[in-house]
Structure formats: C-alpha cells, structure tokens
Design a binder for these strands. Sequence first.
DNA 1: CGCGGTGTTGAAGGCATTCAATTGTTGTGG
DNA 2: CCACAACAATTGAATGCCTTCAACACCGCG
Lengths: 249, 249
Amino acid sequence: MAKVPETTARTLHCDHCGIRHKSICGALSADEMHHLNEIATVRHFSAGETIFSDEEQSAYFANILSGVVKLTKILPDGRQQMVGLHFSPDFLGRAYGQVNPYFAEAATDVELCCFQQSAFENLLQKHSGLERRLLENTLSELDTAREWMLLLGRKTAIEKLASFLLLLVKRAPLIGCTHVSIHDLTEIDLPLSRSDIADFLGLTIETVSRQFGKLKSEGAIELIDSRRCKVLDMALLSECAGQEPPPLD
Amino acid sequence: MAKVPETTARTLHCDHCGIRHKSICGALSADEMHHLNEIATVRHFSAGETIFSDEEQSAYFANILSGVVKLTKILPDGRQQMVGLHFSPDFLGRAYGQVNPYFAEAATDVELCCFQQSAFENLLQKHSGLERRLLENTLSELDTAREWMLLLGRKTAIEKLASFLLLLVKRAPLIGCTHVSIHDLTEIDLPLSRSDIADFLGLTIETVSRQFGKLKSEGAIELIDSRRCKVLDMALLSECAGQEPPPLD
DNA sequence: CGCGGTGTTGAAGGCATTCAATTGTTGTGG
DNA sequence: CCACAACAATTGAATGCCTTCAACACCGCG
C-alpha cells in the first residue's frame, strides 16, 4: 500500500510543475513544497485504465497533471452512473479515509502527481492553508454535484446533452480541448466516448446519439467526427440546455 | 444583512445545547465556545417557510437544532429538484461566500442556531479544528450527493422510493422519527409531503403515490397514514431499493 | 356543510429504453 | 495495400416506464 505502483514512477521537481499555482499546491510555501516534493511521484495511465477501485481507493491522493478522469458508482446489477469528471489541475482523493464505493478511471490518457495518503494527511494537519484550499475545493465539487443532480433528476435528454456540451465549453479551455476557429466558432474535443457521456447523463448510448442528431438538425452544433464538434449557435445551445427560459409557444 | 432577522431571536447558552457535541461545535474548546455563544441566535421557522433564497443565502450559517430542512434548485421554467435534505445536528451554509442558486426551506417546523457569516468565518480562520470539522462535514455531504446522483440517474421509481425510505430508517433515529413497535417492526415518520418526496427523487407526486402502493402490495411496508409507514420486511425493502443483487428470473 | 389542500387512482400519451440491424472506424496481419 | 475482425456509433422499430391530465377520496377547518 505504501509501495510505489508498477507504473512509471519517479520523483518530481515541483519547481517546474505546470500546475504548481493552479492546483491545491498553490497554498504551500517554497519550504512546504519541498516536503511535498519528497512524497510526490508521477504516474501515467492509459485511457480506460482503472486509477483506483473502491477497495483500495484511499491509498493515495493526486493532482491531475493532464488528461481526464471519471469517477463512477455502480449498482450491484451493473448499472453505472458517473458522479465526477475531473480535468487538470483538479485534485483526486477522499481525505480522512472513509471508504467509498467509487471507481476512478482514466477517460483519456492521464498523468497524475500522486501523494501517499499518510504523508499527505500529515501535511494537511500541519498546514492549515492547505486544508482550507481543500475545503474550498470540496465545496465547489459539492456545488457541481448538486447542479448535476438537477440535471439528472429534471432535465430531458436533449437538455442533458446540451448542458454537457456547455460544461465542456466552460471547463475545456483549461485543458486545451477547445479553440476558436476563423469564423469565431468554438470547437470542442469530446474527451468522452458515447458510452461515457451516457454514464455522465444518466442515459443510454443510443439516446445520446439521437440527441446529437437533434442538436445538429436544430442548427446548434455540427459534428466533425464522433470526438469533435463545433458550436454553431451558443445562444441556441444554452436554450436547449434549459438554462434560459424556454420559448413560450 | 448583519441585522438579526425579524423572527424570534435571543442569545443562547451553548453550555446547555443538546447538540453541542454532535454538531460541528464539538470541535471547540469551552473558551472558543464562549466566542461562538456571543454570535449565536436561535430562530424558528414554520413548515414551508423559506430559510434563505439564492440572493441572500450566504448571510448566515446555522446548526439545525430540530426539524428538517430541504435544499432545492430550480430551473427557469419552474422544474424543481431537491439537492439536500438536512436533519439535526447538520450544519447549513456555504462557507467562503460564492453565491449559489439554492433555496433552503423548512420541510417541518425548524429551530436553527444561527451565526453571522463574517463572525463565523473569522472563527473558522482562527480555529483549524473547526475548519477540519467543516471539511469532514462537506466531504460526507459530497458522498451523499453522489449516492443521490446514482439514484437519480439510474434507479427506477420503485427503487428510488425504497432507497428514500431506507435513508430515513438510517438517519431518522437521530431525530426521533422512527421507533420500534412491539412486533420488532420499524415505524417511520415521513417528514416530507408527497410533493417534497417527488422533488427529492426526481419523480412526480402521482408516481410516488403509485410506488407506495407497489411497496405495500409487495408486502415490504404498510401505510398507517400518509405521513407514517411501517416497515414489514426490511430485507425486501433493501432488495426493492436495488442495493442487493436483483433476483435472477 | 362546503371549501382548500393533500393524496390516491385511472386512462392516455410521450419520451427514453430496449432490441436489432447497419454503418463507420481502427488496428492487425496477410 | 487490402481484408478482416473488433469495436464504436448511428439508425430504426417496438416496448415500457413515467408523466400528464383528469376525476375522485380524504382530512381538517371555518
């Protein structure tokens, strides 16, 4: 458990870390960072690999250096629901060690900066700035989860998909998966398969596919290929997401 | 905003507080408690009253002394989803002041111990034990929210209702709304109206009512009146909730 | 007794699922 | 380079679950 996993692992120099200030490490002084540096290792995961399953999940914490990580929960009969979707520079892991039935899986190729649980929790207790950062982090995750609950409980399939695309538009700049084309249109790289999107939205892959079709025929988006789409009309997309008052007719 | 609201308000003696050790106040020493005592006021809300709406939500924090509080989110067209359900001795409020579109409403008559935002956040910064308690609190709320997402996204109507009843069975002892009858059967007081339950589960009131009927005819529960039900077969109820592997037929 | 609010029950309709077939994509080996 | 398999995504048709709309029952209260 305290062992470094089989995957590529090496110590890392926080000084040169690209997410140094955006991640929760931003709360640390140069001195404290030094301590963290000593317990940090970088690990790589290919798309589809399990990062942790419910049995061993609390073994370590991690910052996402690059890539997309999904958190899912599974019912005994196999039904599955995504409950978290994390990009760089998000933080992974459940402090204060209660066991939770989550699976974390790499949605794309992923690079993590990992910390041993015990060492990290030590640091957490010593340095209240870090704890506060973690608290703020957790609070905003809770906000996200609740927004998501509204989506799952009350939105229609097309609203769900439109909301998902808007979420990508909003968050994706951070991970460089959108860019603006010459015609001022946003292009989105979808970091998830249809099956993952379905898990995210509480739908089936067939329904997701059909809603893509509807948004296309509405003129809100255009599909370049199954992993890339262009937003043709952002206002229309927002309206489809149910965030604007619906047209009264 | 720093004013004490119009409702009944008086200073309170934390020494005699019934939830003193179970709430987040348990993190405080007698001395610190003294400080908290000075910024605390008790407020009463009748069932149905709004505790805070999205505009003013961050004005204060509170411990729930008694009663049940629901947190809801609303779509522009009026569709509504509950995103939090809180009992005594839960803590209410979003630290570090981002505005969030929640409504908090009293589901039953409610008694709160309120703290001014600024005063409480001061205390939070000075006393890291309190902050840690809040963090643990927030983490477990996040766990709850994610469990709920699984329910909203993937469970059927009957599974949703059964899960809700199990949640009450699990949490309700804290608020004295269950008790065991002479035949060793658990009796539950439902603190929510059908409409609230529907909001909780992402269903309509009609569907909730029908699922009560199904659970009854399955023999899992018995309805005493619309606000009280008896669990006849806990194992069956768990099975209906989809927590056990479903019967293979 | 009538009234409003809350909960139940029935019938019809719609949206998402399920099952099934087809097309598209990727990577491997001949 | 092409054939082929394996997988991912789309599309179609039929079913089913939940919703919607509507009527009715129940309860407390003036």
